[in-house]
Simulated assay, not measured.
Amino acid sequence: MRVLHVITGLGIGGAEQQLRLLLRHLPVHSGVVTLTDPGPVAAALRADGVPVVHLGMRGNRDLSALPRLVRLIRRGRYDVVHTHLYRACVYGRIAARLAGVRHVVATEHSLGTAQIEGRPLSAGARALYLATERLGSATVAVSDTVARRLADWGVRPHRIHVVPNGVDAAALAHDERARATARRRLGIPPDAYVVGGVGRLVPGKRFDVLVRALAELPPDVRLLLVGDGGQRTRLERLAGASGIDDRVVWAGAVTRDLPALLSAMDVFVSPSADEAFGLAVVEALAAGLPVRYVACPALDDLPPEEAPTALRIGGTVADVAAAVRATRAAHGAGAARGPVPPAAYRYDIARTARQLMALYRETSDR
Rank of each mutant, 00 (worst) to 15 (best):
V105R: 09
A106Q: 15
A106C: 10
H109V: 05
G112S: 07
T113R: 15
A114C: 11
Q115K: 11
I116G: 08
G118W: 07
S122V: 12
S122T: 14
S122E: 14
A125Y: 14
A125S: 15
A127Y: 15
A131S: 15
T132Q: 09
E133F: 08
E133T: 13
R134K: 13
R134G: 05
L135Y: 09
G136L: 04
A138P: 10
T139V: 11
T139E: 02
V140G: 00
D144F: 06
D144I: 01
D144P: 03
A147K: 00
A147H: 00
R148M: 01
R148F: 03
R148Y: 05
A151T: 03
A151I: 00
D152N: 07
W153R: 12
W153Q: 02
R156A: 09
P157R: 12
P164A: 07
G166E: 07
D168S: 04
A170E: 11
L172N: 01
A173E: 04
A173Q: 05
D175H: 06
R177V: 14
A178S: 13
A180V: 12
A180G: 15
A182N: 03
A182F: 04
A182H: 09
R183Q: 12
R183S: 08
R184G: 14
R185I: 13
L186S: 06
G187W: 08
I188A: 06
P190C: 15
P190V: 15
A192M: 03
V194P: 03
V194E: 01
G197M: 08
R200Y: 07
R200K: 10
G204A: 10
G204W: 06
R206I: 02
R206N: 03
F207D: 01
D208K: 08
L210C: 05
R212E: 10
P218Y: 13
P219C: 12
D220L: 11
R222I: 07
G227F: 00
D228V: 04
G230C: 08
Q231F: 14
Q231N: 04
R232P: 02
R232Y: 04
R234L: 14
L235N: 02
R237I: 13
A239Q: 01
G240D: 07
S242P: 11
G243V: 05
